[in-house]
Computed example of a mutant assay.
Amino acid sequence: MNDRQEQWRAAEQLALTLTEGGLQRMAARTLAVFLFTDQDSVTAGEIAERLEASAGSVSAAIKSLLSVGLIERLPAPGSRREHYRLRDDAWAVLFTSQNTVIQVMLQAAQAGIDTTTADDPAHRRLTQMRDFYQFMLGEIPTLLERWQHHHNSAFRQA
């Protein structure tokens, strides 16, 4: 077995682990492609070919990874296909207000709060949900600042 085959075996194992952790299977496999590719960017077609998957399932996985901020679209002058890459700050963005999933959760909680009365148990639960996400978003900048400091220190030592 060559090094590339071993890498793709590790990629599939990582995807399995991510799936067991709750990520949808195709999103996990697609994320593994981004993590293990030796290219600067990839197209949906290249991912589908690599994973031997349908264009539709890869498209849905890409949309999912875009929505949480792990990947980004790149301009590709001269190409008629969309190009994507793993964001340099992917893991940090995953936990910021740029993450559309967090924003959707906040909006959903607020919409529910707006339709319930203060004495309704649903109102209390939805308020707790909203407050949790607001609290987390408030704490994340300090955490990310600490991460950046840690990362920069480790990078300078390497």
Rank of each mutant, 00 (worst) to 15 (best):
V58H: 00
A48W: 10
Y133I: 05
H123W: 13
D114C: 09
R4K: 07
D120P: 10
V33H: 02
L143G: 04
I102A: 10
Q107P: 04
A44L: 13
D120I: 12
Q110Y: 09
R29K: 15
I47Y: 09
D38H: 14
A44R: 15
Q13E: 13
A60K: 11
I102Y: 07
S57E: 14
D89H: 01
A44C: 13
M1I: 12
L70R: 02
A118P: 10
V42S: 03
R9S: 09
L14I: 03
V104L: 01
D119T: 14
M105I: 11
Q24F: 03
R25S: 13
A28G: 05
A10P: 00
A28P: 07
P121E: 12
D119I: 13
R124P: 03
F36E: 06
T19Q: 13
A76Q: 12
D40P: 07
T30K: 07
R81Q: 11
T17N: 05
M105E: 06
Q13S: 11
G78S: 08
L23P: 06
A32G: 09
Q107S: 14
T115M: 15
G45V: 08
D40W: 07
T43M: 00
H151T: 13
L126I: 12
S153K: 01
A10F: 10
Q103N: 03
I71D: 00
E52A: 15
G138V: 07
A11F: 08
A61C: 06
F132R: 02
L137N: 02
Q103V: 05
A90V: 03
R124Y: 09
L65V: 06
T100F: 09
